[in-house]
Nucleic acid binder design. Structure first.
Length: 336
DNA sequence: ATCTACACCTGACCGC
DNA sequence: TGCGGTCAGGTGTAGA
């Protein structure tokens, strides 16, 4: 359930703590976290060892580390990694390390002396002259993982080279091949609203299924889908093509607002599973209006003097939460 | 081509 | 106490 805001919290943490770090020993405790790695653990270990981390990028729920092999001869300052200036001069390796948190993944940056986590699967030793740290990939349910993927160019709709990720430091027009099919997310300035609208009009799938499709819009998972639909007053089952242009814009706007707010509060957390790189939980759960609020009053209805209680309904083999008053199916859209 | 079904996982929780 | 069933659900792929 880490969605865009939670993954961005992790990305920022990595950008703050591991840029310029040189990767030393790589320890794979559980090969199942490398299911997508061609050649298995050996290939990952062989490739990563000795490389320097030069950038951390994200698109939707995918994170990736950009690497350089030429960092070895750099002079590393006392107690830290190399400078930004040095980093920008380094030539990129042709593969990035892609990380997906799946349902329960965490990326922690910790002192090697601290005890390892129960579900730690992979550990990268980060070497500095004084500072030694570990990048730990922890994942209880093993839906997440790490793997190398070759960088390929990214293009805009008009065919121009375009930064693959709005949030990377270097803003390179390169994306890991394995992430190239993922659409830009609603917080990406290059998000293509017209393409989003075209796809909406072409789809008879329920609107919630539509916005969960990472090929159409990325970063949205079950929690923020329900929150955005609540804000836009849309029923999850409404066929996408029957959502008006104004409602579609409202939905996109709602997803931006809810994710921006969640990011400002450090992400959503239901338990200790979703945390930043220092192991701390976010506070956004307190701000959720629909998700997880079965039986509680809809705050919008309450403010208007009505009483209606949020309901939980099965949809797409998972739970959906909505207000039965302000998120109804119009007559035309019934039957899904 | 489009869509559905399932595999991948662990742990918390619930009813018996 | 134990034990089976259910739920949490993102992503990729096999099959219809």
């Amino acid at each position: 359930m880490p969605e865009l805001p939670e993954v961005e919290v992790v990305r920022r943490g990595l950008a703050d703590h591991v840029l310029g770090a040189r990767i030393g020993q790589v320890l794979v405790r559980d090969g199942r976290s490398l299911r997508r790695q061609l050649g298995g653990p050996t290939a990952l270990v062989d490739y990563l060892t000795g490389l320097t981390i030069v950038d951390v990028a994200r698109r939707g729920k995918f994170l990736w580390l950009l690497l350089s092999g030429s960092g070895e001869e750099l002079r590393r300052p006392e107690g830290g990694w190399v400078s930004d200036q040095q980093l920008e001069a380094l030539p990129l390796e042709d593969q990035a390390l892609v990380i997906h948190l799946g349902m329960s993944g965490q990326v922690l940056v910790k002192d090697p002396a601290l005890p390892q986590e129960k579900h730690q699967r992979v550990c990268l030793e980060l070497e500095g002259p004084a500072g030694q740290k570990q990048l730990r990939f922890v994942d209880q349910r093993l839906f997440g993982g790490l793997f190398l993927s070759p960088l390929v160019p990214t293009f805009s709709a008009e065919g121009a080279l375009q930064a693959a990720s709005a949030v990377s430091r270097l803003g390179l027009p390169l994306i890991p091949e394995a992430v190239a099919h993922i659409a830009r997310d609603p917080l990406d300035p290059f998000f293509d609203e017209r393409a989003f609208r075209r796809a909406m009009l072409a789809s008879s799938r329920p609107i919630k299924e539509f916005i969960l499709n990472q090929r159409v819009i990325s970063g949205v998972g079950n929690i923020y889908a329900d929150e955005a639909l609540w804000r836009a007053r849309l029923h999850y089952g409404r066929p996408a093509k029957l959502v008006s242009a104004a409602q579609g814009r409202a939905l996109l706007q709602a997803s931006r607002q809810v994710m921006t707010q969640a990011l400002a509060e450090g992400g959503t957390s239901f338990d200790a599973l979703y945390v930043n790189v220092e192991g701390e939980s976010g506070y956004f759960e307190r701000s959720l209006q629909a998700y997880g609020r079965e039986g509680e009053p809809c705050s919008r209805c309450q403010a208007a003097g009505r009483s209606s209680l949020v309901v939980r309904e099965p949809f797409m083999n998972r739970s959906s939460y909505r207000c039965p008053f302000c998120q109804r199916l119009p007559r035309r859209g019934r039957g899904s």
